[in-house]
Structures are given as C-alpha cells and as structure tokens.
Write a protein that binds this DNA or RNA. Structure first.
Length: 827
RNA sequence: GCGAGAGUGGCGGAAUUGGUAGACGCGCUGGAUUUAGGAUCCAGUGGGCUUUCCCGUGGGGGUUCGAGUCCCUUCUCUCGCACCA
C-alpha cells in the first residue's frame, strides 16, 4: 500500500462509488424528521468560482452532518439558466444561447461533482426548460386573473448597455446591478407584479424571521419596503376641478406651504403649462432633466433647480395661491411624485424658495425663540408650537399632525395614509433569453392571457441575435403571429420576456417534486419538505432575490398551491472570498481557479481551507500558503492512520475500562465530540470545529508515540470517531480511511458520535491564582475541590507567599475550577 | 446624514455565561532525520526589561475582587440605504 496521501485517485474513486449506489438520492419519508438544506443555485456562467465553492462547501457540511444525525435531508442543485450572459455570448461568438447554456451546465455540473457535494442530482433542473417555465407562465396568468399582474406605461429604469428596463431593486447606486453602467428613467409599456399589495405582510412577517435571519438582511428589507405613516392632501388646481395629491409626514406644517413641487415625470408636468407663457421653459426643463442619468440626479452635488408652470393651486386651509413648480429633486417614485413645499420647515424647500424668491412663512416656533421667515438662515425642522395656523395656533406640532389631518378629513381635502417606498415589480424585459410572457394582443379583445391548456408558450429557437436592442422574438413571425384566445381572430403575442428573478422566486418549491408533470408541485411533497430549513447564499441577494422569493411564496399560497407564507426558516449569508484585500476579478488578476486547486491539492483540501480560514458569514481571505496548511493537515491525518494501520486493526475496542494512560486521550476525544457537534449544530462555526479536530490529531500523535498495545484500543476508537466527524468536511479522505480501518458502511449512513458527559469532565483543573486581580501562579487541583484546600494550595505557592509577605488578606474570591482571587492590602 | 457590523500578535483567526488573552493554522526560529534540498517529526514563537517583574485586545473614562467581553465617550474601517417630502 502506498503511504502517500494521493487525493486525486481517492476522490474520483469515492465519487464514482457514491454515484453508483445513489447515496445522495432522497425521498419523502414521514417516519423520519426532514431537513431541507438549500444553497442559492448558480447561473451557468461557464465555470465554478471560489464563491460557489465556499457557499456549497458550507452547505455540504451541514447536509452531511444532518443526514448522519438521522434527518431525511433534501439537498438539491440546479441552474438559474435564463439570463443575459447567454445572449451576450451569442452576439459575441454566434453560439445559440441554449447551446451555450447547456454546455456550461454540463461543465459546471462536472466541476461540482469533483468537489464531492452530496446533491440529489435526480432533482436537477434548468429554469430555461419549458417543463419548468411553463408553470411560471401559469402563475402569471393566474396572477393576472387576480389583479396581481397589470400593464402600465410609466417611467422606468433603463439600462442602455443591457438594452432593457430594470426593476428598482436592480438599480444599485444609480447603476445597473448586472453590468454597472448608467441607468436613466425612460417611459415604457411594462408588465408589473403588484408586490405592493403584499408590502404590509412582507414587512410584518420580518418579525417572524428574526430567529433565523441575520439582522442585517432584515433591516435592509425593512428599509427597502420603507413604510411611513402620513397624510394625503388634495390641493385644488386654480380655476379647475382637478386636484394635485401630495403625501406628507408633516401635515402640521400645512399652513406654511407656499408653493408646490412636481417631479419632472409627473403626468401634470406635461399638461399644466399648456397655453401659458411658461410652456416652452417647462418643456426644455423636463427634457433636460430626463436626459440626466440616475446616479447624477441622486447625487449630493446635483443642483436643485426648478421651473414655474404658470399655474397655481390652492392651499386647502389658508386659501392662498401656491405657484406650481417642476423641481428636479422631487422623486417621481416616492409618494405621489408631488410635494407641498414648506420652506420654513424643510431645508430643500428653503433653499428652493430662496433661489426663486418664494414666500417663507414660519408656522412652528421652537420654545424660547421667535423665528422670522425674512431672516431665517435655514429651515427649522424640530419641534415647537404652531403659529400662523389659525385655530391650531399654540398647539404642539406633534399633536397637530393628527389634528390637522382630521380637520382635512372634515373638509374632505385629505386623510391619514400609509405610504411605502416599495414599488411594484417591473417584470418585462426586452430581451430574448427568458421565459415568454403568456399574453396576446388582439385588436378586438385587447390584451388577453393565452389559454392555460396552450402552455407552455415555448421560446422560439430559430432566431438571430443581433444585439441591436430589438427583441429577437419580435422578429420571429411564427412566434408573433397567432390567434386570439378569446375571439379566434388574428392577434400578436407579447414579445417581452420575464425578468429572470421570477425563475429564482419559486425554484426551491419545485425541488420538492421536480419532475411532476400535471401541476407545478405535488402538494404532499411540498407539505413534507417545505419550508427550507437552512438557506445559504451571498449577501448580495439580501433584497433582490430574497424579497421576490418571499413575495412569490405568499402569492402561491394565495393561489392555493401551498400552505406556507415564508419559504426560508433560517438564512446564512456567507462572506465573499477576497484575495490581496480585494474581491477576486479578472481585471485585478487575483482570481483563484477552483479546478486548479482541486488538481493540485484535491477537493478535500480545498473544502477544508474554505471552512477553516474564517467563520462563514465573514469575508474570507484567500491564502496560497493557507491551503498548503490544510493539505498538510490531511497528509498528517493520512499518516496517522496508514503508519499505524496494523496496530490499530489489531487493537481491541470491546468496551472494557481504558488503561489509565489513555484517560486523558479519551477525555480529549469526548470533549472534541462535544465541541465539534456544538460548533456545527448550534453555532455554524466550522473553523473552530476544525481547529478542535486538529488538536485531537496532535494529541493522537503524542499518544501514539508511547502507546502500548492495550492503549491502541482507545486510539482506535478515537481515530474512528475522528474520521466520522471529519467526513462532512473532507468526505473523500474520510471515506478512504474509514474503509482502511476496516469499516464497511458508508460514512453518510453512519451515526454521528455521541459524547459521554462523564468523559467530558476534567478530573483535574488548572486554577489561576490572582492577587488583587493579577495572575501570580496557577495550581492544579481536583475538579470541584473545596475552597479551603484550594486556598491552602494557593498560599503555599512561593510566588504567592512572596506577594503576601508584606500584606494582609482582606477577602478571597473563589470561582470553582477557574480562579481564586486574593484581595490583599499592604501592611 | 440614517441603519447594521467590525477594530485582538508579522498574517488568517480563537476566547460560547464577566474568570489564566492569543486556541488552531500560516509565517518565522531552533533541533532531529537527510550527502544535500524537499518532505516529515519534535520544540519555541505578543511586546519590553538579563527575566520571581512590567506592559498589552483602536483611544479615553467608568462599573467590578476581576473587563477583549458590561456601561459612557471618542476615533477608524467595512457594508447597506440615502433629496423618502
């Protein structure tokens, strides 16, 4: 037998064996507790990167551990297969997106298999398959029927690089989440999911997730949903019967509202100035503003500007005429896209008023001061008593918020309301490689859904992808031209495709019954497996995917498909893999290729280092030296077993009392079992679990040095237990050594070891002896030794004596098994 | 500005309930083995001062017999949001 550790041959051997016996296949089994472990599935970009390796290794440890703990573990893998890179590849190298995608899937699947992950591959699917997206089209139609899908012409984020619109969540710091280029607002016909109908529920349920989700993610979602309570106020446009509606959280300042600001995208911006002297100026201003990209428009340095529309509206409580302005800082997206301007008590309005010489009326006086609109240096945004506010004068402004609102209610000019920052999810994309939206445009019947029995609407494959920005499907006559499902007349299909975040919003439920033919899910399977007990993925999806998936789960419940509201009971967001202080990227040239690592060090060493270098939620510094350390440890482990194989196999483990000389090793073993079990199960701290097992290996080397043949019983027991505990981390070498030790069962089918609490107890402990809180000696005493004896021993330490010679003892604090602190003052 | 998190050796990190700071690994040093190198095994490794001691967890203050851990204050960094009316 070769004594060298050779990961290459070991790893392929066991991967093949696991595959042959379908070790990872799982079926619902109601006699066993279930555990659904899921990692965020990858986009088939071509090759696995270190982020995947880290993510999936963390998941695999937990999946394997839970299985050994007796759980029926669902651990699936698949492909988030629609998306732009496939289309870009098609443009660049004339490969059909479908071919490109499936070739990547094949390659990456192979790479994942080389890492030894315990996936039930029989459940694998790609979301670009009609067998998958047909159900999504069905959901779309059913959502349409329930009013959860609608079409609207509105201003939306447009990425000029990707030639498509983006949902709000998909704009990061004014840039496209995918390509990082500038985003503009552009008017478009779009399909929307009415996620705002679930805003309240999405927010409320966050409370129920607090046990299992990181606070960071929850607060990001809370923030994104952005609930705020306020008042809707209607201002009549002078000499018309039309109103402008605004949302405000400060109705208490209404008497100080002296003008009105509209977003450039506001529908009234176009119409209000018609026929006035301001018409041209308004047109120019709006056109100019709309050409500015989102990043610039939201930057601090962007100058606040506006233009008068030539029209006025009426303050409902004062009756004064308020000039209506278009202002570039008013967000079209928030509230009603119109703001009542109170320059005395809002800094932006103040600056705007000074710039355009608009009246400033103070309506809140802080205690002990008298502010004057004429001389005001900046807006006063704090609390105080109302002035210039008619019957509300003298009222604390906090109280006036409610009082003014109910007054508005009385005069039918406004009401209390709840406003959300969250907008409806724009889901149409002007791209090819996505699921077709199952709608048909008929001149007679309008826009109508296709018949459910006609699903799936299959994405046409005979197309040419030019990259001109016009959807390739629109060029496929055979696809576009159809008959109306209502009247049977000539009609045209919708040519936008669905946002690819729709696919990832329900794939985790499909995994429960991935091959079900008649319906999207087999409900009994879903009832058994869902929710996902542990979800693992990157923090970058804190809002995007995780919010969409929560929304979709609620919708599917309301459509009657499933019974639960929240899909992911526990969430772990793993940190990034960093090298040389920066995220790995081609441009920085600091990319580590997992495949090369596997070739050099093996999958086990690669997995081990990913787990050992940092706790999972933290960013992890990649170190070329570090993985060598992990590889070295595996070599050390290998030699521990192979060098002593004969002694180990000859040893008797038949449960008799271990020899005195092995007691400390046996204690170490049980302490290690306890530590590793807690670290995996309660803390998700794999780095410390590994450190504990390294300590055990170090102890085993020492124990082996002087071991007699009787001693090898305990060593054998320890080695066997160690191999079991290591197997979720480094499954291949563990399996090989397990077999070497004469074991027949697969490790995954072997029970996780239990620790014996009695063997975890130290019989002797080291007690620190402090004098006035400073360490002066350590003494070894029997566990739970009484205070009197510990004091006696402490006092007899020469260093302790020395310090107490010139002092008198005031007090002694004794914490059993830990510390004795002698408080003494000088004589 | 708001929200969240983090600051510990040369480096990655540990310290789970307020009780010996620095586990484990990397790196470094020494020894054994070796013709040599590599690999391996063993030992040492926070700083200072010729050493029974002093200092040390970003800084300052506090609570306590005792603080990396709790409280106040301050600085720095990372991430997220950011004209939200």
């Amino acid at each position: 037998m070769s004594t060298d550790y050779n990961p290459g041959s070991i790893e392929s051997k066991w991967q093949k064996r696991w595959d042959e016996i379908n070790l990872f296949k799982v079926d619902a089994d109601r006699s066993k507790p279930k555990y659904y472990l899921l990692e965020m599935f990858p986009y088939p970009s071509g090759r696995i990167h270190m982020g995947h390796v880290r993510n999936y290794t963390i998941g695999d440890v937990v999946a394997r551990y839970k299985r050994m703990k007796g759980f029926n573990v669902l651990h699936p893998m698949g492909w988030d297969a629609f998306g732009m890179p496939a289309e870009n590849a098609a443009i660049a190298s004339k490969i059909h997106p479908k071919k490109w995608t499936y070739e990547n899937i094949e390659y990456m699947e192979n790479q994942l298999k080389k890492l030894g992950f315990s996936y039930d591959w029989s459940r694998e699917f790609a979301t670009c398959a009609p067998e998958y997206y047909r159900w999504e089209q069905l959901f779309f139609i059913e959502m349409f029927e329930k009013g959860l899908v609608y079409k609207d012409r509105t201003f939306l984020n447009w990425c000029d690089q990707c030639k498509t619109v983006l949902a709000n969540e998909q704009v990061e710091g004014g840039m496209c989440w995918r390509c990082g280029s500038q985003v503009f607002l552009k008017e478009h016909d779009q399909w929307f999911f009415r996620i705002t109908r679930y805003a309240e529920k999405l927010l409320d349920n966050i409370e129920t997730l607090r046990q299992g989700w990181p606070e960071r993610v929850l607060s990001m979602q809370r923030n994104w949903i952005g609930r705020s309570t306020g008042t809707l106020i209607r201002f009549q446009i002078e000499d018309t019967s039309n109103d402008i509606e605004v949302f405000t959280t400060r109705p208490d300042t209404l008497f100080g509202a002296t003008f009105m600001s509209l977003a450039p995208e506001h529908p009234l911006s176009k119409t209000l100035s018609r026929g006035t002297a301001q018409e041209d100026a308004v047109q120019r201003f709006v056109t100019k503003t709309l050409q500015v990209d989102t990043l610039t428009r939201t930057s601090d340095l962007y100058e606040k500007e506006g233009v008068f529309t030539g029209k006025y509206c009426i303050n409902p409580v004062t009756g004064t005429r308020m000039p209506i302005y278009i202002a570039n800082f008013v967000l079209y997206d928030y509230g009603t896209g119109a703001v009542m301007a109170v320059p005395s008590h809002d800094q932006r309005d103040f600056e705007f008023a000074r710039k355009y010489d608009l009246p400033i009326i103070v309506v809140i006086q802080p205690e002990g001061e008298t502010l004057d609109g004429e001389t005001l240096q900046c807006a006063y945004e704090g609390e105080g008593l109302l002035v210039n506010s008619d019957k509300f004068n003298g009222m604390p402004n906090v109280k006036a918020i409610d009082e003014v609102t109910s007054y508005l209610n009385e005069i039918d000019r406004g009401s209390a309301t709840v406003n959300f920052r969250l907008r409806d999810w724009g889901i149409s994309r002007q791209r090819y490689w996505g699921a077709p939206i199952p709608m048909v445009h008929c001149e007679k019947c309008g826009t109508v859904p296709v018949k459910k029995e006609d699903l799936p609407i299959v994405l046409p494959e005979d197309i040419e992808i030019s990259g001109t920005g016009i959807s390739p499907i629109a060029q496929s006559d055979s696809f576009v031209n159809t008959t109306c499902p209502v009247c049977g007349g000539k009609a045209k299909r919708e040519t936008d495709t669905l946002d690819t975040f729709v696919e990832s919003s329900w794939y985790f439920i499909r995994y429960c019954s991935p091959n079900h033919k008649d319906r999207p899910f087999d409900k009994s399977e879903v009832d058994y497996w869902m929710p996902v007990d542990q979800y693992i993925g990157g923090i970058e999806h804190a809002i995007l995917h995780l919010l969409y998936a929560r929304f979709f789960t609620m919708v599917l419940r309301d459509l009657g498909y499933i019974d639960l509201e929240e899909p992911f009971a526990n969430l772990l967001t793993q940190g990034m893999v960093i090298k040389d202080g920066a995220k790995m990227s081609k441009s920085k040239g600091n990319v580590v290729d997992p495949e090369k690592l596997i070739g050099t060090y093996g999958a086990d060493a690669t997995r081990l280092f990913c787990l050992f270098a940092a706790p999972p939620e933290k960013d992890m510094d990649w170190s070329d030296k570090g993985i060598e350390g992990s590889y070295r440890f595996l070599g050390r482990l290998w030699r521990l077993v192979s060098d002593s194989k004969d002694h180990l196999l000859a040893a008797d483990t038949s449960g008799s009392e271990p020899p005195e000389s092995m007691h400390s090793l046996k204690r170490k073993l049980h302490q290690t079992i306890r530590k590793v079990t807690d670290d995996i199960d309660k803390r998700f701290r794999f780095n410390t679990a590994i450190a504990a097992m390294m300590e055990l290996v170090n102890d085993l080397y020492r124990a082996r040095e002087s071991a007699s043949s009787e001693d090898f019983g305990v060593i054998r027991e320890a080695v066997n237990t160690l191999i079991i505990m290591l197997s979720p981390f480094v499954p291949h070498i563990a399996e090989e050594l397990w077999a070497l030790m004469g074991n027949k069962e697969m490790l995954l089918n072997t029970a996780w070891p239990e620790y014996d609490p009695q063997w975890c107890e130290q019989i002797e402990t080291t007690v620190a002896v402090q004098i006035n809180g400073k360490l002066r000696a350590t003494i070894t005493v029997a566990k739970d030794e009484g205070q009197a004896e510990v004091e006696r021993m402490a006092m007899s330490e020469s260093n302790v004596k020395r310090f107490l010679e010139e002092a008198s003892i005031k007090r002694i604090i004794y914490v059993p098994n830990k510390i004795i602190n002698i408080i003494a003052v000088p004589l």
